[in-house]
Design a protein around this nucleic acid. Sequence first.
DNA 1: CGCACCAAGCTTGTATACAATACCTGTATA
DNA 2: TATACAGGTATTGTATACAAGCTTGGTGCG
Lengths: 243, 243
Amino acid sequence: MVRTSKAAQTSQSKAIEKPTEEFIYTELYNTICERQLLPKTKLGEAMLAEHYGVSRTIIRQVLQRLAGDRLVKLEPNRGAFVAHLTLKEAQQIYEAWRLVEAAIIREVVKTITPEQIASLRKLITAERKACDAEDYPLLTRLSMQFHTQLANLCSNQFLSRFLKEVIPQTALAYFYEVKKMPVCMKDEHGEILDLIESGDEEAAVAAAKRHLDGIEAALNAQASLDQQASLVDKLKLRVSSLS
Amino acid sequence: MVRTSKAAQTSQSKAIEKPTEEFIYTELYNTICERQLLPKTKLGEAMLAEHYGVSRTIIRQVLQRLAGDRLVKLEPNRGAFVAHLTLKEAQQIYEAWRLVEAAIIREVVKTITPEQIASLRKLITAERKACDAEDYPLLTRLSMQFHTQLANLCSNQFLSRFLKEVIPQTALAYFYEVKKMPVCMKDEHGEILDLIESGDEEAAVAAAKRHLDGIEAALNAQASLDQQASLVDKLKLRVSSLS
DNA sequence: CGCACCAAGCTTGTATACAATACCTGTATA
DNA sequence: TATACAGGTATTGTATACAAGCTTGGTGCG
């Protein structure tokens, strides 16, 4: 059982406190977003229950919540799996993202405060650091956070919620390990933020569009590699069945 | 226990089949959308479990799913309640709706087939019938169905899913009984469909915008009545506490 | 050799028992 | 009379036991 309490816990019978449902949910949520858990991975209830030292009841609730976020797919009588996106679905996601991101930026340009800009800049600095350190899980999370934090500045909680639900799903678009999630390239977040600060609505929207287009283009490039990998997998399977 | 099987069931011990989770979910979902269950209504687990003749386990799953749809609010250690929207939130919903509805119509205009148009017209006929029969719960559901079915024609499942999640939530905007949900007025759905059929993108989008503006205006008008009703409630409470 | 079938084991689905928490009512006191 | 507290009641939260279903590996037959 994993120990979750913050303190070091003096080894001795000190009553290990159980992780809350919220904690387990957040951990799995982040792990999937960071692509530590790849799409199609099976999430067995008994396995998770033992790992966290809670009953299956809790795990089931967590899996249901993640299914609501579309990060997990529940198959009746078969269990829970990390969800995955086809290339077509991924393209749809980016199209929806562009639409809503533009609407949000148009509003945010008019209402953003210096404090909010400073907060976003801090995030960009952290991104750059993670990029230099080649800590790609962290970078992935920070990149998403830039967009979700931007969405949060929108007064329309339904639009911002939509983005906050859609963005994590982009992590489900690759079946195979990728060294670098193509969010973050160069310093596009910084460029977008500069334009937002300058108050130039159309330029900021255009930059955001280019940014998302770029991510999607990288996705398309990756897709052919994925197909190749998929083919290799199938061949391996066929070979192993010969032995 | 409520009997859910379709057949008449020959009274005698014929083994009453239990309603599935899906059935209970759909029933509660529709009931909330139709405003048979008003916002803030408490949804007790034991009560529902007995009513449907299943264990609380099933009911909890249903309530969690409904919470994922934002139709139900779960309060820790206090239970589940039909969710409700403030006036401000309702206005945000309509703004988001307008944005996405426009995007969807722009695409649907270009791809809709005669069969799809016929299917939507059938729905409009049913609406008119329900309106004449003054069956407002049915009318409410049919009106929503017009919009969700239109959304379904969009090739982008993420945009259509967004609308399908947002539309039911508009039912949560009134605390007090209203004779007539202000979706459907006159024959606006018919007008929108005609314009879509004609292929005039901008006119169809404009008509849809007007339609949603109209609904929102009716909401704002209702809001002051609600406030009044709310005041009456508070007075009643104060009076009853005097006895 | 290949395919179909069957049984054991494992995983998920459901009900229930018990624990923890919140709510309500009645009583005592200022 | 109003308020604060305490006990009992009702409701939700969690764990566990059992039922139902899928998966898999083996066996037999074509």
